[in-house]
Write a protein that binds this DNA or RNA. Structure first.
Lengths: 162, 162
DNA sequence: TAGAAACCCTTGAGTAGCTACAGAGTCAAG
DNA sequence: CTTGACTCTGTAGCTACTCAAGGGTTTCTA
């Protein structure tokens, strides 16, 4: 099959597939006479694996490690467990951070329940206050926003986009 | 004061200050004879405001809007409320997504409680399954990982880094 | 007063994980 | 033979920074 069909089958953007190839996550496919990429079932499996991992918010690095384990079946899978435990830890940590954040934001929001002019807005006043260093520990956890280039990431893969 | 002192006072990286200037968030400061940036109290206030907003995970765009409101005190602050409500919504949504994610990950983790070889690892099997489209809606919310360039972001501003 | 250390400058590139576009080629249907 | 859908490569863009190279300036110390 050509790249478009692979994209449809796996609910992946065509550009993303080429990106994975460049990144070494997908093996380089055969080419047709007209220089089109030709994929088979193995590619569908492999890409589905990647997308499933991505829908679980794993990094491409983590996925690379998992792929390595898939390809060396004799190895012990304790490392797979460890990787997953770490990942679960990250998610839990990010949730806790977001909970704190929500509290702070709601606190701030209550400073300005009614509508007045910006000169006396409690929210703006609150934001102008000194910075309170929070005791949060270092983690590789992302922020809240994602209007970046990929509206698809971090929200699961939602069916085939036609 | 010079940029280093401003950085210490606000717990901001020097490069970040210059970045904010380039980005139009901080007004262009005066220069000394030796071409050094010279800052005053107003800059400290302004930068503190930005960093406080960032510690609440707001985007630079959102901060820009808030700054606009600060500078036009006659305007009604209903828009400030609206912006904050939206932001709170984003955070809440991301938390929900992470909760789902955690459930899925723990589910996956239970498939391989004991240590066996990777050929029979329940986790790898689970990850190889077909993609289940989740009904998540589009949002600009980021993922779980952040080993990117800024170990400081999304975890509050923790005191002055010497 | 010389030299070293600490600070500052600009410019450009890199980070994750894509997305989007330009400008070209390929292929099947009508 | 043309139209349109598809594909190709290469490059630039997105967030919010961070880092490094290769210089200049200031300040402290001997």
């Amino acid at each position: 099959m050509k790249i478009g069909e692979l994209a449809r089958l796996t609910g992946t953007n065509v550009e993303t597939i080429r990106y994975y190839e460049r990144d070494g996550l997908l093996p380089i496919p055969a080419r047709s006479d007209g220089n089109y990429r030709i994929y088979g079932d193995a590619h569908v499996q492999r890409l589905s694996f990647i997308r499933r991992c991505r829908s679980l918010d794993m990094t491409l690095e983590e996925i690379r490690v998992l792929q390595h384990f898939k390809e060396s079946p004799q190895e012990n899978c304790a490392d797979v467990n460890r990787l997953l435990d770490l990942h679960i830890g990250h998610v839990a940590q990010r949730m806790q951070e977001l909970q704190e954040l929500e509290m702070q934001l709601k606190d701030l929001r209550e400073r300005c329940g009614e509508t007045r002019d910006a000169a006396h807005c409690g929210i703006l006043e609150g934001l102008s206050q000194a910075i309170v260093p929070s005791g949060k520990t270092a983690s590789h956890v992302q922020g809240t926003h994602w209007h970046a280039a990929n509206p698809n990431s971090a929200k699961g893969i939602q069916g085939n986009q036609v």
